[in-house]
Nucleic acid binder design. Sequence first.
RNA 1: GGGCGAGUGGUGGAAUGGUAGACACGCGGGUCUCAAAAACCCGUGAGCUUUAAACUCGUGUGGGUUCGACUCCCACCUUGCCCACCA
Length: 971
Amino acid sequence: MTKTKLKDNKYDPREIESYWQKIWEEQKIYSPNLDASTPPCTRRCGASLRTKKPFDPSASLRAQGKPFYNLMMFPYPSAEGMHVGNMYAFTGADVYGRFKRMLGFDVLEPIGLDGFGIHSENYAIKIGRHPKEQAKISEANFYRQLRATGNGFDWSRKLETYDSKYYKWTQWMFIQLFKAGLAYRKRAMVNFCPSCKTVLADEQVIDGRCERCATLVIREQREQWFFRITHYAEKLLGNIEKLNWSQKVKTAQRAWIGKSEGALITFKIKNSHRTIDVFTTRPDTLFGATFLVVSPEHPLVADLFGQGKDVMNYLSKAVVKSEQERIAQGKGKEGVPTWYSAINPVNNQEIPIWIADYVLMGYGTGAIMGVPAHDQRDFEFAKKYKLAIKTVILGIRRKPETPESLRAFHAKGDSGQDGHQTVARQARMTAGGEIEEAYIGEGVIINSGEWNGRKVPEDIGKVIDWLEQKSIGRREVTYHLRDWLISRQRYWGPPIPLIYCNICAKKGESWFTTDESLKIERKSWKSDHASPFDFLSSTMRGWFPVQEKDLPVLLPDVKEWKPTGTGKSPLATVESFINTFCPNCKSPAKRETDVSDNFLDSAWYFFRYLSTDIDSTAFDIKRAKNWLPVKMYIGGAEHSVLHLLYARFITMVLKDIGFIEFEEPFSRFYAHGLLVKEGAKMSKSKGNVVVPDEYIRKFGADTLRLYLMFLGPFNQGGDFYDTALEGMYRFIKRVWRLILDSCHPELVSGSPSPVPSPLEGEGQGEGAEIPKSIRQAQDPEFTEGQVRNDTQRRRMMHKTIKKVTEDIEHLRYNTAIAAMMEWYNYLKLELRGKKLEVTGEEVETFLKLLAPFAPHVTEELYHNVILRRQPKDLDSSSRLVGTQNDKKWSIHLQPWPTFDPKFLEEDEVTIVVQVNGKVRATLEVKSEKLKVKSYVEELARKSGKVKEYLEGKEIEKVVYVEGKVINFVTG
RNA sequence: GGGCGAGUGGUGGAAUGGUAGACACGCGGGUCUCAAAAACCCGUGAGCUUUAAACUCGUGUGGGUUCGACUCCCACCUUGCCCACCA
């Protein structure tokens, strides 16, 4: 087959690609042996084990058989199939993986499908097909597409989250969290999507709308299962700085965890024995507190404040208000006074207590002290309801230091009083002397008794100390992060593996009262929870996890799988599912009927990839030790918060309960950019979603891969234009032709002769059939000038190796490809009209550099030109590719080319000659003369038009930057 | 409202203090062909000029630092993404 192709000189991607994909998968060249890899070097990472080479500048990148877990975010298999955005992400990840493999790492690059959960179920509802059936269809389609992209996936390790072999262990994870006391049930205000008919985690509510269907969510009191992720808030936050992630993602995670430090202050309520705790980051303004506000959901509202017609009226309105309405209302804050007042503990002043929905129950204590003079929201509220405003901070602004900022400062209308070191500044006033906005800047405390004169923010710590001494308040830290609402009233997910026993509940028993529980040391609990056992055994009455031997709890195959809207999962009506026996007392009991959130499926899948061949455990501990954490994780920035945070949380839990020794799952995370179509975001509603299939059919996966990687910087995304693809197709065809046309005919047609490898010491030396330089075809006509030519050509090659190597390492794929094009253009020009040919060394190097981007065509050419084997010899029956031990036949298992800096040195360097910073000439200077300024200056004065420009001018200064530029500065 | 990016030819982009526009797309012209496609060759920031050479201008706007600024600093404009009544 290939002979014909070569004769015709025709590049036919379709034939080549499917052929090699089949061979790769058959020969398992991308399937590392997970149990046999060299464990990571503990002494010096990346050191070359081949010490024979005198100097190898890229040695630090090399490794011999070291595990490299190259992970990409597994896709949600939408029924429309994989779109080109998925392919963009996967190709970028695959290029990196292939590069690492050629550098000698044992690369694991697994793929799977995240097909469990609401997104898949909603689609099933839409088209009216059972999700299980739809999953099968999507799966086949997706895997077909994924194969066609030519990624180096380990197909022996794929997984699907909806496969019971997988979700068995998702359920096992749930049980581990339960047993660690990190899963609990509580009645709480939750987000409910009336369209999806399920509750949602806070993270899944965007602008008050459902993340999946954009329906306005309703706030409701419901009893639900939660994971205690807040328990890890401090660790999740603290570890961030150690991660090799982009600053952007780290910032997003920090913001989401949202740590605030401040104080908890206790107010007494007049005419009541009750007290109110408020959290504030500004305890220094306590003297300025003129009212207290509690959230409508605050427990004291039901217990104490909920009296009076006005209050009842307000509450009935506020509680049903959706999140969206509250936000839309913006600054028009509404509230209602209660009949109660509180006592400000620092000055015993009586201040009114209000109820308002601008205070959120979910943050802090659900109650705040209103300091209108120094908080904008409190200010607006005070204005609206004519509440007292008391200034306690005198603003200070330090005099601006630079002339520019001073000018800007004055231009803004700040009435700076020149000559003073500081400018007194308070809240901005209207002409009538009324305050226009709260002052929240730095300053000095006033009107606050013994605190007067203290500086803010410097002395806030001292203020808190004072409060602690007087037992008025204490230091407190609070987080924006809330516990993870994990239960969903849906069908298409892993049933939560818990059983409720009414009989045990009545006896006050739960799993936490069993012997097994008592034996477990709960490392995950902080010491300040003095008795987690008591706490859990009281809140978890009647609840028991399914015994591990009984896993999985299979999702029953039912006809009525659509969401019910009754607040219960469709499983709640399946008698055969619900009824079971209590693991504790063996009497009849009932199963939990909710399923777990889809984000749990994806929070641990990278553990499962390592052990898809093992049924007896979630993941093999030894393999996890060798292969994890993930060395490189590539995915979309939209998962900066949710998925990455959940995966980190689960990993920390697994560490605390003793399964692993690390607590961060992803050493490096790299967020790729977004691919758009002709300037617009691809979306189903716009109908501009690009599916790779047709492009692969027309141009081949190699062309599409190269094109996608060439669009722009990988972390910035790109714009997909049909026409531009042709250019990349052209490039591959040109390379194909250059290599085949300029190669010695004998080489292409066969009859190999054993000769030493042109890339000496590159590991494939002994016995390998590598041809010597083709140009040694001894043609006397071009020996003339050959030496100079050789040097130049070698320099170009080494320059390209350097550039491509460094660019791929930094994921600058677009410039790596450009460098290869430049080299191609150079060779083309070099060979044109002369009898020259590309050397074997050049061909081999070029193919290797291109291999991560265009795996199929490079493999094909490598076999025909370098190995001189016909692909048909590679059928599994052939002796050439006999055993799995002999995998050297593939270009993708060859060592990455190295460059030698000694070939990079130029013997002549171009110096730019400037007069007053303007380029007037360029100059070729011999390298060895570069250091001599006087010599260069001499030449420069005479070069080009420089003489004219310097005529009659006095030279004030000559700036010479060695090897780059010389600039004459005249008067 | 807050945070983080980005602004360069007709287009995607390159250059992170030293010849702006690499590389590619598109476009124009040519070769081959009966013709078309493909392929190949030449040109392609703007202005001035018949052409060439030369010169001038040119990286969102205004200012600054520097012998020299797309690059560093200040202010502003535009735009994208993320978060948002977080006390």
